[in-house]
Write a protein that binds this DNA or RNA. Structure first.
Lengths: 75, 75
DNA sequence: ATGTGACTCATAGTCCGTG
DNA sequence: TCACGGACTATGAGTCACA
């Protein structure tokens, strides 16, 4: 799949994940554990370096205590 | 990445895409063209057979004339 | 107009480290 | 606590012929 819109969706998504994680005062390790994803992968996601798929998105939303709609409203 | 929650996110997502496409009276071919994805790939997505990632999600949302938030509010 | 199996190739996602 | 790299495996992206 090709890249880029104006501000890359991957970066916007990652930014929102990080902002919400900090809002909850969680470390990356804690969120990764909650969401059941790899710690380094979460780091990549937050930096906009990964094109996350539905299943992981759902898990992250759960770890962040947000519905999918709430999460993407922030994106 | 592992599979399955109660109702699989892939199926729920696909169902919403299809419902919205029909709301717009579009064929799969038309939506696929709008969104810049392959028709058979879209078919797979609607049937919940694909674990779609951010970049494709964004394109589908565009083709469906919905923001990401609006799209996921329906999921 | 759509569903499906089969396929290639790129990348999603894991796990080990380091400063 | 995190960014980043290397190396790996599983799966997503993208296409086709045919039903």
């Amino acid at each position: 799949m090709k890249r880029r819109g104006k501000a890359d969706i991957r970066e916007r998504f990652g930014f929102v994940v990080r902002a919400r994680r900090e809002e909850l005062s969680l470390t990356q390790e804690e969120l990764a554990a909650r969401a059941g994803v790899n710690r380094t992968y979460l780091s990549d996601c937050e930096r906009g370096a990964r094109n996350v798929s539905l299943i992981v998105i759902e898990r992250l939303a759960g770890g962040l205590e947000l519905s999918l709609g709430e999460l993407f409203n922030r994106v």
